[in-house]
Design a protein around this nucleic acid. Sequence first.
DNA 1: TATTGTTATACTCTATAACTATA
DNA 2: TATAGTTATAGAGTATAACAATA
Lengths: 147, 147
Amino acid sequence: MSEDLPKPMRLEDLIGYNLRRASLVDLQGATAALERAGTRVIPMCVLSTVVERPGVTSAEVCRLLGMQRANMVPILAELEAKGLVFREADPLDQRVQKIFPTQDGLEQGMQWLTLLADHETKLLSRFSDRERQDLLRLLSKLWQEAD
Amino acid sequence: MSEDLPKPMRLEDLIGYNLRRASLVDLQGATAALERAGTRVIPMCVLSTVVERPGVTSAEVCRLLGMQRANMVPILAELEAKGLVFREADPLDQRVQKIFPTQDGLEQGMQWLTLLADHETKLLSRFSDRERQDLLRLLSKLWQEAD
DNA sequence: TATTGTTATACTCTATAACTATA
DNA sequence: TATAGTTATAGAGTATAACAATA
């Protein structure tokens, strides 16, 4: 009885359009939440990665976060200047510097993560637990399985 | 028996992190798909809006797409220079210009939308129809209901 | 040859302030 | 006073090429 429309014919039917709008809404709230703590989203992501993987190298962080090495330089310099991470020469490979969180870095990393978790609780207040789980799973599957 | 962990403690547990990674993966593919047609994502979104709402004003497109008025100016100039849209003074309000798609604009708008739909079919090839529907609904709910 | 960390640079997108013409 | 369209400008994020040191 109903005709089949095989392709989306409107902008709002595109997953990508809704992805970008949703990501932008989240980013605004996340930026505001972190601004009060004196940081931004990208340094927060880098610090979290260092906290979760102490001894990681700059190039590894770049691969994990999908960033260019050149753009990591000022971010790490900023975190180091704030006393949140420090670098150590790797005796096994003179090219690389292993990055570790300081005690302050561990505490700030936890606090920044909590700020974002609180922001997300507000953002998703009308979502059921099941909807949050589904959304997280589908988004993760989307970018992790991308070739 | 299991402990309850009320807040995410890792970067990858944040919806926002997965939103941004997923949006970026999609954006790369969408940009590549549109590059072959000689355009970019934002002009495509603007043209689609004009096609779906002929006679819309610049300020209305900005509100619909969440853009600043200042940033719309060069986009509309580009679409106009390509002969895809044209503007008409509104006799009822001398401040506004109503924007309409040309015949070429209608055809290009359809073609650009098809390019993105094809890109999404590839991107979501491992997603079931149900998963695509769920993802679309959850993303739309996230940004449309945001206050 | 390939990789790491780095510098310099350019480009896109986004944000803000200020202007004019009109409502 | 508020809004529409515009200009100029600054900022954040991203991308590429090239370099020296090391593997």
